[in-house]
Amino acid sequence: MILEVKNISKHFGGISALNNISIAVAKAEIVGLIGPNGAGKTTFFNCITGIYRPDAGKITFGEYREEITHFAAHRISERGIARTFQSARVFASMSVLENVMAGTFSRTCGKLWGTLIRSRRILEEEEAVRRRSEELLRFVKLNSRASSLASSLPFGLQRRLEIARALAAEPRLLLMDEPAAGMNAGEKQELLEIIRKICAQGISILIIEHDMKVVMGLCQRIAVLDSGEKIYEGSPQDVQSNSKVVEAYLGKKRDASKS
């Protein structure tokens, strides 16, 4: 297991956003996280990536099970967890290529002095960063837009840019928050392909998604959240037929004999 989350809880005032959630992700595995709106899925991501501090519980990451529960966001990213956001938070005033280059920050080590005198090492590093970023843009098929302003991309492409930027941070686990939202069928197909390719490189993926076709076609395992509780975890087939899950999404079945 590369990521192990044990009994995480998070409260906001009197509201319990997450309650005793445990999820584990293995190497090169794709795990889905589904649930109705307000179930706490994004809060869960925020707890893992260090944006929120969980009130209780433990998060460990990596082969040596290092505890990262109270790490700051940048340290968690350095350990190898990258994420994309629900609302495609690209750096609007940078070019597409620069966005990806910004993602390599924690994997480069150019020092201030070297930057000022433009040392050979800095120039080489900068060249390597550029080549790597262009490669990542090709990977998400955005290379033809490398010079465009990030904010000029349509929403679907901003999503893909975010994926490339997250990959630039060389993660071992990628958290994706509703990557297919607002995409058309063709774009979704492309996205599925990209995600499968990422997984084939040995990167684990934890994905929040509402589109059942995407989730069912992609994930080996699915966890279902509802009002801050994990109500079920299992294979895609089991999830579809589980009564608790159906209830969370569609409400209780009325008993015909009682009415």
């Binding site: 944006i51 700051a72 940048h74 990213s77 350095e78 750096f91 609007a92 940078m94 910004a102 930057t115």
Partner: peptide, 30 residues
């Protein structure tokens, strides 16, 4: 000095922070 900083990893990190601090932190930028 300023133009070299601007086109370096530091310049990119600064603009990333200006644009979106949370996203920047999640990319490993302290």
């Amino acid at each position: 000095i300023v133009s070299r900083l601007s086109s370096s990893r530091f310049g990119r990190a600064w603009i990333a922070i200006k644009e979106d601090e949370v996203a920047a932190a999640c990319l490993g930028i302290h």
